[in-house]
Design a protein around this nucleic acid. Structure first.
Lengths: 199, 199
DNA sequence: GTCTATAAGTAGATAGAC
DNA sequence: GTCTATCTACTTATAGAC
């Protein structure tokens, strides 16, 4: 107990860091990156503005780290799941995963889709690369479905983007306090996706 | 000729006004409302910052007028079209109209979807009311389709939002210089919408 | 690690000359 | 109708005390 408890008063590196990221995420989602000042973030954490620079070199890095963290988590969560056999089962699995994952972190989703304009070109390229990797998995599923004669899709790339746009749109209206559970929402969307692409 | 040409040098109210709106729209779409300064807008128009206030009382009105103008145009364009007979024909008409209209004004679409957070609560309510009226037309079509046994949709409200999200997503990837024409894109999306909701 | 103080620059909006 | 000049407030980021 003594080791970890012995700490200079006012020194909270291990808890302040995550709190800075959390506050930035919430405020960026609510007001937008450009509309939020470092002072607002500091006030939300309960420190002075200067103290933030112990945790981020600048405001841009704060945004980029949030977005990269979100995309890394997305790809890692997807890679951690076992792959069902057959294109249709994989498509259902992808659909349900996408909705579930996105509904669990609405702020991160919102920031990652809305603040791409505010990334530097280099940071933008990194995020786009990660997003592309995610989209490629869905496109591969659709292509396998077409090859197996299970899916009737003329343009797998456009269909990929259309399906993802439809699924991500769920974050704009879903409320946990509403009448539908997440699995019920998954089923409604899976029903539409299946009919839209099945042969 | 004399009447309309007789004008004080440096006085261009009738052409500067539209140019201010145009410049604001382009800059808001590219960088975001909060990231754009009145001085940037003025520079794009070719005047000094103070001159902008001959055309807008403040920056917020500039944003609100752009968004309200876009929604008014959307509803007016929709209302101006003849209604095809039958739910399925109306659904196809709505689908093609939505894609065509949105691809014709990508900046206005982008601003209207991304800058809702930056509206004052009163202005937000107005825009949401207009958007709701547009969504209601699609929901009415789906309900009529269900009543006629042509559509198989369990939740018309969710399906409405899902379809609109999918269709609007076209603006994120479509480029006029690409391989597909707008009518071809319309056909691809209509194929997906039809299969997703048809009985 | 956090504070206060500050540098250096920009924001929205207004006043008054022309 | 547009300009220049300006007011007041706020911005990101840093320096140095503790």
């Amino acid at each position: 107990m003594t080791g970890s408890m012995a700490r200079t008063a006012g020194s909270h590196s291990d808890i302040t860091g995550p709190r800075v990221a959390q506050a930035a995420l919430r405020l960026f989602a609510q007001h937008g990156y450009a509309a939020v000042s470092m002072r607002q973030i500091a006030a939300e954490v309960g420190v002075q503005a200067g103290a933030l620079y112990n945790y981020t070199p600048d405001k841009q890095s704060l945004l980029f780290d949030l977005m990269r963290g979100h995309m890394d988590e997305l790809l890692a969560a997807r890679a951690a799941l076992p792959l069902p056999a057959g294109p249709l089962a994989r498509l259902e699995d992808f659909t349900r995963f996408h909705i579930r994952f996105h509904l669990e972190r609405p702020d991160a989703v919102f920031v990652s889709y809305m603040e791409l304009r505010n990334l530097t070109p280099a940071n933008f390229a990194v995020i786009e690369g990660l997003r592309r990797r995610y989209e490629d998995e869905l496109e591969a599923i659709l292509r396998a479905g077409v090859a197996a004669g299970i899916c009737a899709v003329t343009d797998t790339k456009i269909t990929t983007l259309a399906v993802i746009a439809m699924l991500t749109g769920v974050t704009t209206w879903y409320r946990a306090a509403g009448r539908l559970s997440v699995p019920q929402v998954e089923t409604i969307y899976w029903d539409m996706v299946r009919r839209a692409v099945a042969a």
